[in-house]
Amino acid sequence: MCGIVGLLIKNPAMRGQLGSLMVPMLAEMAARGPESAGLAVFTGELPEGDRKYSLYAPAWDYPWADFEAAFIKRFGVEAQIVVKGNHAVLTCDEPADVFKHWIKEAFPALHVLATGRVMDIYKDIGHPTDVAKRYDFSKLAGTHLIGHTRMATESAVTPDRAHPFTAGEDFCLVHNGSISNPYMIRRKLEHQGIRFETDNDTEAATRFLEWRTREGDSLEQALERGFKELDGFYTFLIGTENKLALVRDAFACKPAIVAETEDYVAIGSEFRALAHLPGIDHANLFEPMPEELHVWQV
């Protein structure tokens, strides 16, 4: 079992409340996944040449100042770095391949959780309410987010195997369920030069879908292809810089419910995750059917 939540704010005046509306959703879904939690939040877009990197360190009191000094020494420019304990978001204009190569050589203990111009990721092991407090989720602002509470079935309980998973830039996915053919998908993608960072089944699904979008599929076409190639049980919630997408497998073995109002679209594994939202009594509530595409634009 796992819990998924998602929130897309339609009313620009409410975008400052994105995090505070979401935290009770995540807390309510802790019963479905009490051991790890995470979220990806989409904030304002950086200029074309800039990138931000969500970084994970092995210690809460990691010496980020030393890391920043090494960055300046290597690249000869200042970087903006926002630290929350063992997480930091670094913004700079270094291209992803150059930056990632350097960090792998110089700081092998650091893990790059996400790359993009819009998306920040926080994920860790621990009870979801503790994780939410640890990273001040309630203060997050932005247009949309996806979140996850994990009860592991397919791989170990570690921060890098918590959801969301990412691939490429500004592309992330949370999953309730289990994929039956992740190694087949992996072998196929590895032949395309795609590298994996964990042994997790959800990572295979994430990298498959993101690869399809780079090969020219729209997000919708990639998801249609996923129905044919990804075998297993899943409710997937996917975030990109301007979209939220929700799909369930052919047997709809894992739950999902959507509440839509003029102000927001909210998604949860169960209604209890949505019960506290403002205006929920008048929301349009529905459950997606198997293999239906539900895509919302920011």
Partner: peptide
Amino acid sequence: EILNPNGAH
């Protein structure tokens, strides 16, 4: 009468 069920199991 049960009030505020709020999706409880």
